[in-house]
């Protein structure tokens, strides 16, 4: 099953830099379609990154985050070959999770 989440986590020894790209429409609920009808809101609300059983980064998102959202951050620690778990839940209750190896 193809994941909606693409994540790249790179360790420099002291820190791990994380970039994530997620496939999601991120409909804000303010946009009209070609027929002039409002596209109902549908956006990721929470995104969490876990390393070694701890949350290292957590996002609360509104409909103002761009379609196919991108986020980048870095945390201290993180070893090459270790797992980084990424998961999201959206405004319709849908979720996805993936686990990436730190490079």
């Amino acid at each position: 099953m193809a994941s909606t989440i693409r994540v790249r986590a790179t360790s420099s020894g002291e820190t791990t830099e994380v970039q994530a790209l997620i496939q999601h429409p991120m409909d804000s609920g303010f946009i009209k379609d070609a027929k002039g009808e409002t596209i109902p809101p549908h956006f990721i609300q929470q995104l969490t990154f876990e390393y070694d059983g701890k949350v290292v980064f957590a996002a609360d998102w509104g409909g103002g985050v761009s379609k196919d959202p991108y986020v980048k951050f870095a945390f201290k620690g993180g070893k090459k070959g270790d797992d980084l778990k990424v998961s999201w839940v959206d405004s319709k209750g849908k979720t996805d999770t993936t686990t990436a190896k730190i490079l």
């Binding site: 998102w61 103002g64 991108y70 201290k76």
Partner: peptide, 18 residues
């Protein structure tokens, strides 16, 4: 967007907004 920065995470975030 509102991000939580736990201890040990850098105070630095990049993202794309509307």
């Amino acid at each position: 967007a509102a991000y939580k920065i736990p201890a040990g995470t850098m105070p630095s975030v990049a993202n794309r907004i509307k």
